[in-house]
Amino acid sequence: MDRPVVVVTGASSGVGRAVALAFARRGGQVVLAARSAHVLDEVARECAGAHRAAHALAVPADVTDEAAVDALAQAAFAWGGRIDVWVNAAGVGILGAVDRTPPQEVRRLLDVNVMGVVHGARAALAVMCRQDSGVLIDVSSLLGPVIGAPYMSAYAMSKAALVTFDDILRQELALAGARGVAVCSVLPAAVDTPFFRHAANHTGREVRAVPPPATPERVARAVVRTARRPRRRVVVGPSARLLTWGHALAPGLVRAVVTRVTEHRCLAPRGTAPDTSGILSAPSASTAALRGGWAAGRRTALRRAALLAAAAAAGALGARSTGRAPFVGRRTRRTRLRP
């Protein structure tokens, strides 16, 4: 991982953009792929200026085009001499009930979210298996492999497919003796990106981010850690971990809560949004951005402050009732005395 050569698809916006910048800030040699050529050039300049050792190469490509993805891998190898990390972050979304979602749009989503990953994996592994080293990271989602939500059947189906694909790919690599190649699935929950503005919407309702959203930088840090220390599945963020634990303990309750939150907090009243196909077929272009404007960083800071205040209050109440020092303080002092 010394100045790694990293390929990132979906690098023009959201999580893909955050991942590219995160590797560049650590001196990575980043190859950027997306459909919006002029936006990629902008991201390449940001990456090149993020660290004195960082370099960036923009390669416009549509991940649904197998030949274009193969050309992306060839360009990355010719430029960097190897491919250390390949991050499949390109993805699109659809919101709408099953009977209101056009089948051709579902087909297009699966072509991007699933076949795009298949094309990326095949192109990356062709290089990594020759090197006998490399990390393939697929950005999936908690939605699909772990939990479900109404009006997002196509998206959830595609993300569940990625986890299954990665599981089987690991088995095949083990049988082939490619022990230097790792395959990892990263599973965030809601993230503060332009995803909801870019998604096709057939609900007739304005969409808000699922609370509380994580920052794309948090997901990017998880991807970088996974590249350094590969793990099969990485759940990102406290909200995602809480949902995972809750679903394991009480799946029916979690499904009911997610359904209610989606219906009443994530969607405005009917008639507040027109039908749109989003960026399913058109590049994000001028709407590409790192964040979606949901103030995730501020909300995260407020949640942490609230948790700390609650813990302090609970400790103070406990001290008053028992006449002893708060548990948190006593625990901290004991921890510091350990060798």
Rank of each mutant, 00 (worst) to 15 (best):
V15L: 12
R26F: 03
G28M: 01
Q29W: 13
A33E: 03
A37Q: 08
D41K: 14
G49E: 09
R52K: 12
A53Y: 15
A53E: 15
A58V: 08
V59F: 06
A61W: 05
A76H: 07
G80E: 02
R82V: 04
W86M: 03
V92P: 02
A97G: 13
V98R: 11
D99F: 10
Q104I: 09
V114T: 12
V118H: 13
H119C: 12
R122K: 14
A126G: 12
G134T: 05
D138K: 07
S141V: 02
L143A: 11
G144R: 04
G144Q: 03
S153T: 14
A154Y: 01
M157F: 14
L162R: 07
T164E: 14
Q171N: 11
G180L: 01
A190W: 00
A190P: 00
H202C: 08
H202E: 06
R208E: 06
R208K: 10
T215P: 02
V223T: 00
V236E: 02
A240D: 02
L249W: 10
P251K: 02
R255A: 15
A256Q: 07
V257A: 13
T262P: 05
L267R: 11
T276Y: 01
A288R: 06
L302M: 12
R304M: 06
A305N: 04
A305Q: 11
L307R: 15
A309F: 10
R320Q: 12
A325Y: 05
